Amino acid sequence: MATKFRNSFWLKTNEFAPQVFLFRNIETGQVVYSQTPHVTKYQIKQQFFRPNKENKKPLPRHDIWRPLAVAQFNDYQKAVQAYHGLVELRYMRQVSRKDESQSLRKLNDYNRIWCSGQYRPTYTMESTADLSAVIDELKLSENCKIYWDGLWWRGDAKHWNENIEHIDLERFGRREKFVILDEIREKGLLDFQKNSQLEEAQPESQTQPQQQTTA
């Protein structure tokens, strides 16, 4: 299990696919980004910079985290860039541009984030919006796939780059979630290997001399 930041070499060597995992907390609506199919204390500590009453630091209990989406890219460097971009936007929302971010949120009569009990859908919606923004800003849409735990989490398709393939995950329970995520990891590895083979074959075909035709 990865317990700290991993570079592209480590991910490839340990047979992880070029993917970024988004996990949602079923009790609070909070989201954690991960480079591997796990939620760890390190990720929570890294991504919750200034916890408060509305955004308390969540626990790493496996029973309260469920996959929200898995973003798959065509190489490992893009996956690392996407992860960094998401964490950076999280920092801006919580620290450097906190007031601006709060002004754009739906608030209740007490000037708090709209919620039902302890659940706050704002965090989930912001995370999906940030994923779309990161893919566009860093130009990561080529051969990009996103697996969703229900396409309704994606929102309106018009907010996404048209090159992205969106895939609806089959329904699964808490016990099966890691099995499904491992299957997605394996598919991601196969896709990466196929893309690499195609890229290696293209230069060879381009360097082959063309037959000259005579009149």
Rank of each mutant, 00 (worst) to 15 (best):
H62V: 08
F49A: 07
H62L: 11
N52F: 02
N52R: 08
F49G: 00
Q35T: 04
K45C: 04
N52M: 01
K56A: 12
W65F: 05
I64R: 11
Q35N: 13
H62P: 06
Y42G: 07
E54P: 00
P37N: 13
Q47Y: 05
V70P: 06
K41D: 14
N55H: 06
Q46L: 14
N52H: 07
R66Y: 07
R61C: 01
N52E: 02
A71W: 10
K57V: 01
H38R: 14
Q43Y: 12
T40D: 14
L59H: 11
F73I: 08
V39D: 09
F73H: 04
P51D: 02
N55F: 05
D63P: 02
Q35I: 09
Q46N: 08
P58E: 01
V70L: 07
P51W: 03
E54A: 08
T36S: 14
F48C: 04
K45V: 09
P60Y: 05
P67D: 05
V32K: 05
Q35P: 01
V70F: 08
Q46Y: 04
P67R: 01
H38D: 15
V31R: 07
N74F: 10
Q46C: 10
N74K: 11
A69Y: 12
S34Q: 15
Q72I: 07
P37F: 08
N55E: 10
H62N: 13
I64G: 00
R50E: 13
S34W: 04
A71G: 12
V39E: 02
T36Q: 12
Q43G: 14
Y33F: 15
P58F: 00
P58T: 01
H62R: 10
N74I: 04
R50F: 07
F49Q: 13
A69Q: 10
Q46E: 15
Y33Q: 09
K41C: 09
A71T: 10
K57W: 02
V39M: 03
A71S: 15
K56R: 15
P37T: 11
I44N: 09
H62Q: 12
K56F: 03
I44C: 09
P60C: 06
A71K: 07
Q47I: 04
Q43E: 15
K57T: 01
K53P: 00
R50Q: 12
N52K: 01
I64M: 09
V32I: 15
V31P: 08
R50W: 01
K45R: 14
P67M: 14
K53S: 14
Y42S: 06
P58K: 00
A71M: 12
F48D: 03
H38V: 14
Q47R: 11
Q47K: 02
T40S: 15
A71Y: 06
K57Y: 00
L59F: 06
F48N: 05
V32Y: 05
P51A: 09
